[in-house]
């Protein structure tokens, strides 16, 4: 594939990208909280052509037992791509990539959850990628933190995340699939806007120091934008719960007469 890289122009004369975005413009992001019944908390996210579901169970008894921590809860994340989420069918089940992503997402979330409130328990976070188009790990983390909040788990803050990359010699925000395939650098990052703390960061490819500064400034701005969308999703979730009392109530099983 690499021989055709030079033929693709990722930025046109007007500074627009192949999908018409500016270099510092995100793909459209939609988040909905509380979309699953059985899970304690959940969120569904569409971000460009990414479709991601996140669900949270817990705090609950920790399995396997030897992983229990007597002083705090542990966060166990499972990031998974559905077999049909990518162009060539992915074999179902975990691979090395998804295990690594699960680990760094767990660690990022552990930072914001008040794990010390729930010793010896596990908070299980499940991320399923239904359809993938670059940036699924940041999409997964963004959805997971909304699902944690939807589960009512005490948190210091939400965790917005985004990827910045480089294509055609330009730093660009939130790469799409094509840009990601032919890009020359990728920097996924999660940053809490309120404090500026970085909770997840990876990078591969090649960037100068100036490019890194620019990338981080794009990321910072985008994280604020994502954070507002996350908050809005939770607002809508609680507004709808307040509006219809029985609608989202999970304990609706027994009619009165059983006593």
């Amino acid at each position: 594939m690499s021989e055709i890289v030079d033929d693709i122009k990722f930025i046109d004369e007007e500074g627009k990208r192949i999908d018409g975005r500016r270099v510092d413009e995100m793909r459209p992001l939609k988040i909905e909280a509380g979309v699953l019944k059985r899970a304690d908390g959940s969120a569904y996210l569409e971000w460009g052509d990414n479709k991601v579901m996140a669900a949270v169970y817990g705090p609950r008894e920790c399995h396997p037992r030897h992983m229990q921590n007597p002083s705090r809860a542990i966060i166990q994340c499972r990031y998974n791509m559905m077999s049909f989420s990518v162009s060539d069918r992915k074999r179902p089940g975990p691979d090395r990539r998804s295990i690594e992503i699960s680990k760094i997402i767990s660690e990022a979330l552990e930072n914001v959850v008040f794990t010390e409130n729930f010793p010896r328990t596990s908070i299980d976070v499940y991320i399923e990628v239904l359809q993938a188009n670059a940036g699924t790990r940041v999409a997964g983390l963004t959805a997971a933190s909304v699902a944690l909040a939807d589960a009512g788990i005490p948190m210091r803050d939400l965790v917005p995340a985004v990827a910045v990359g480089k294509a055609d010699g330009h730093i660009i925000l939130d790469l799409n699939g094509k840009e990601d395939n032919f890009g020359s650098a990728d920097l996924p990052i999660a940053m809490i806007p309120r404090t500026g703390e970085v909770l997840l960061m990876q990078m591969d490819g090649h960037m100068t120091m100036e490019e890194l500064d620019l990338a981080l400034s794009y990321a910072k701005k985008a994280c604020q934008e994502i954070y507002d969308i996350q908050r809005d999703a939770l607002h809508r979730r609680y507004a709808s719960q307040a509006g219809t009392e029985d609608d989202n109530d999970d304990d609706d099983d027994l009619p009165d007469e059983e006593a």
Binding site: L36, R38, S42, M53, H63, P94, D124, Y126, E128
Partner: peptide
């Protein structure tokens, strides 16, 4: 045909084959 009872779907579903 392959069906996965992923742990997202129920507190009793566990990861694995």
């Amino acid at each position: 045909t392959n069906a996965e009872l992923i742990p997202m779907a129920s507190p009793t579903f566990e990861p694995g084959p």
